[in-house]
């Protein structure tokens, strides 16, 4: 059984937003809502300035608070690590949205159900990578299977010091960051 993960190499990200638009078109994401985004953090004062670009998306947590807090079982976790929402079971109560520390979910105004990143599960089934990964101009997004020791994500995880977002939340994300500075 694969264990899907994404490594985001922030040193490479150039903030071009190709990933954001590709995701929206791939997944027919409703207007003014996003499954992924690129956050820009600027520190320092002129002329000593530093900037961090941080692509963000659902962390597909191993310890997923959205799943635990969902009263209907609509939010669930697959064995391969992907966290999904079963639209038919979702009653739009927003418990998952409140529980997620990463702002990764929203209600789809078209059907009232919770909506989120699926790691482009439908593409994975076709042997492709998630849309954001395929289009990323700088190859900052790397996707793969942690159970395959030959996969690039496994190799990076073995060799590099990776970070996760809001570690103190104890969510055990499947999205890892390679960055020069500590995450703020």
């Amino acid at each position: 059984m694969p264990r899907y993960a994404m490594v985001i190499d922030q040193r490479r990200c150039i903030g071009c937003m190709a990933c954001v638009v590709a995701c929206k078109r791939e997944n027919n994401v409703p207007e003014e809502h996003y499954r992924t985004r690129v956050v820009e953090i600027v520190e320092g004062t002129f002329p000593k300035v530093r900037m961090e670009l941080r692509p963000e998306l659902c962390n597909h947590c191993k310890n997923a608070p959205c799943v635990y807090n969902c009263p209907t079982g609509a939010s669930y976790k697959k064995e391969d690590g992907i966290v999904l929402v079963n639209k038919k079971r979702c009653v739009g109560c927003k418990a998952c949205i409140a529980a997620c520390p990463y702002d990764a979910r929203f209600i789809d105004p078209r059907n009232g159900a919770a909506h989120k990143c699926t790691f482009c599960e439908h593409r994975i089934k076709e042997g492709k990578e998630p849309a954001c990964v395929t289009t990323c101009l700088s190859r900052a997004r790397i996707f793969g299977d942690l159970d395959d020791p030959q996969s690039i994500v496994s190799k990076i995880c073995a060799e590099k010091h990776l970070r996760i977002l809001i570690a103190e939340a104890g969510t055990k994300p499947s999205v890892y960051y390679l960055s020069l500075q500590p995450l703020t």
């Binding site: 927003k94 929203f106 209600i107 789809d108 105004p109 059907n111 009232g112």
Partner: peptide, 13 residues
């Protein structure tokens, strides 16, 4: 974000 989404839910088709 939640507020916006709530507004959206009301007009969902």
């Amino acid at each position: 974000l939640a507020t916006v989404a709530a507004g959206g839910t009301a007009i969902s088709v």
